[in-house]
């Protein structure tokens, strides 16, 4: 991962946005709110996330980053008594519409969680889980998908000899990369990552960050982190949230060097949070 790439991407985005090519907006929130019961955890957020870039979400803990992230593939449906307001537009549809096929949505929007959550199954079965759900049973085809995904997640060399051993036996960093491979195996367009490195040591973190750098070529990545250095290192764009509100959204470099909002500035200069 290099500064150069980051800069190039910035410029690209700048170009596109200035030349107004809307096709490059991959997902868009319009006045989107999410409630836990009566509590509004995400408040009327509007933001446009461009295709094939890394968008970071930062903010003090409890500000609604995870909630917003999980709203993108409707993971909040799992929690009883949640409801959404506003729109989350993906592929021309509000994903909170009645006739949305949530299963398809989730297979187009992959997710990696804070703690590596591999299944207590073999490495192979973990990666093959998604493809199998989509009805792929051919052994050959599965092996190919598994290998590609593991290669993409830069873990193939470490595990190729023990694909059938239990995934729980791997180190935390390996498990997280396996989770990424597992998410890639369903061939998503968007990859959501909720503090993917917070449970890992620095070395494993560096590997994941490198991996993100490679994956941005093909995927739209949205990453939640409360490590500002990480956001600065890996992302093209950064969104700063505070108490459920999207305070500032812009190019990472600009946001870190020259924030427009005083709250953002306070946060990144470490005055609170």
């Amino acid at each position: 991962m290099s500064e150069e790439i980051t800069l190039r991407k910035f410029d690209q985005f700048a170009e596109h946005s200035s030349s107004g090519e809307p096709s490059e907006i991959h997902i868009e929130a319009k006045d989107f709110s999410l409630f836990y019961g009566d509590f509004e955890a995400v408040r009327k957020v509007s933001l446009k996330i461009p295709r094939r870039m890394v968008t970071a979400m930062i903010g003090p803990s409890g500000c609604g980053k995870s909630t917003l992230l999980r709203s993108i593939n409707r993971m909040n449906d799992l929690i009883p008594s949640t409801h959404a307001k506003g729109e989350m537009v993906f592929d021309g549809h509000n994903i909170y519409d009645r006739n949305i096929d949530v299963v398809t949505l989730r297979s187009r929007v992959g997710m990696v969680f804070q703690k590596p959550n591999v299944f207590p199954k073999s490495i192979f079965d973990n990666v093959a889980y998604g493809p199998r759900l989509q009805g792929i049973t051919n052994k050959q085809q599965l092996s190919e998908i598994v290998e590609t995904s593991l290669r993409q997640a830069a873990i193939w060399n470490e595990v190729k000899d023990r694909l059938s051993s239990n995934a729980l036996g791997m180190s935390g960093g390996q498990q997280q990369r396996l989770c990424i491979a597992r998410a890639l195996a369903i061939k998503p367009e968007i990859l959501l990552m909720d503090e993917p490195t917070s449970a890992l040591d620095p070395k494993a973190t560096a590997k994941i960050e490198d991996l993100i750098g490679e994956l941005r070529e093909n995927y739209t990545i949205i990453i939640v982190t409360h490590n500002m250095q990480q956001a600065a290192r890996v992302s093209d764009l950064t969104a700063f949230m505070y108490e459920g509100v999207l305070v500032e959204f812009g190019k990472t470099k600009q946001l870190f060097t020259n924030p427009k909002n005083i709250q953002t500035e306070n946060y990144i200069t470490g005055r609170f949070g």
Binding site: D91, N99, T104, R108, K187, P188, Y219
Partner: peptide, 22 residues
């Protein structure tokens, strides 16, 4: 792009499918 294999799958279910699922 082959990496994003599901891109062509529509997010919206047909009414019949929706009813069936429900």
């Amino acid at each position: 792009m082959s990496m994003n294999g599901n891109t062509n799958k529509s997010l919206v279910m047909s009414d019949a499918a929706s009813v069936r699922l429900r």
